[in-house]
């Protein structure tokens, strides 16, 4: 589903990601863990084409992202941002925001599908889609952001710390919603988090990153059995 080879990203001299590779199988949930600044979010943003200066190859469903038009990629991969307070446009009601990707891509019946999508993420009821973002709670906003990411029916969903901006009680709700969506829609996830508990709950495999480089890749079973090769990973788990 997703192949990243030899990816390096630098922001005007400062290296954010160095020679990193990862492969995610279709239907899998893959986690990226590390301290802040270790380059995990940068990898997601680069996959989405939000960074310009990078080297290496990224393939999504076999398509090289450098050679594939944005609209074609948009149908394959979407992203949910970290902060639901800044990822929704403050001037539009949420129904319009969920419908916007479908309007851009000329899909039929955006209104009807918007209502279905909102229902699907647990924001049913006809009134919800006519609310402005500031009338919703953080958890509700994150549900809207998820509905918007699903609007184009992507196969791969990139989640950048999807719960770190939310209250602990809401985090579990959102994680369970994501798990349900993955099962029902057959999605592939790449989840970035600094919270090992979230990653071990959500992901079958994970990669630990430190200082812009990958440290090691583990399966969930290895993580739970503490079959860990690297000292840094061990320290990270001890701290969690």
């Amino acid at each position: 589903m997703l192949e990243v080879h030899d990816l390096s990203v630098d922001f005007s001299g400062k290296i954010a990601v160095r020679n990193t590779g990862l492969t995610v199988q279709s239907g899998e949930s893959f986690g990226l863990v590390g301290e802040s600044g270790s380059g995990k979010s940068t990898i997601l943003r680069t996959i989405m084409g939000l960074n310009r200066s990078w080297s290496g190859t990224i393939r999504i469903d076999g398509l090289d992202i450098r050679k594939t038009p944005r609209k074609q990629l948009a149908r394959l991969v979407q992203m949910v941002f970290q902060d639901p307070y800044s990822s929704l446009h403050p001037r539009y009601v949420i129904g319009q925001q969920v419908a916007e990707p479908m309007r851009i891509n000329g899909l039929p019946n955006p209104e009807k599908r918007t209502a279905e999508l909102l229902e699907f993420v647990g924001l049913g009821g006809p009134r919800f889609q006519f609310r402005f973002p500031h009338e919703l709670s953080g958890g509700q906003r994150q549900r809207v952001a998820i509905a918007r990411a699903l609007a184009l029916s992507p196969k791969l969903l990139l989640l950048d710390e999807p719960t770190s901006a939310l209250d602990v009680s809401i985090q579990a709700e959102i994680l369970n919603l994501l798990n349900r969506l993955r099962k029902e829609l057959g999605l592939t996830f790449v989840i970035v988090s600094h919270d090992l508990a979230v990653i071990s709950y959500m992901c079958e495999r994970l990669m630990v990153m430190r200082n812009a480089e990958p440290v090691e890749t583990l399966t969930r079973e290895q993580l739970r059995a503490r079959e860990i090769a690297d000292d840094y990973t061990r320290a990270l788990i001890a701290a969690a």
């Binding site: 989405m48 609209k71 979407q78 992203m79 403050p90 925001q97 891509n105 952001a145």
Partner: peptide, 23 residues
């Protein structure tokens, strides 16, 4: 992020400027 989100959906720069930046 909200402008990035519509950019990721394939919106043209024109659409981004008129409907998302200008408001």
């Amino acid at each position: 992020d909200y402008v990035n989100a519509v950019r990721l959906a394939g919106a043209s720069e024109f659409r981004i400027i008129v409907f998302h930046v200008i408001p």
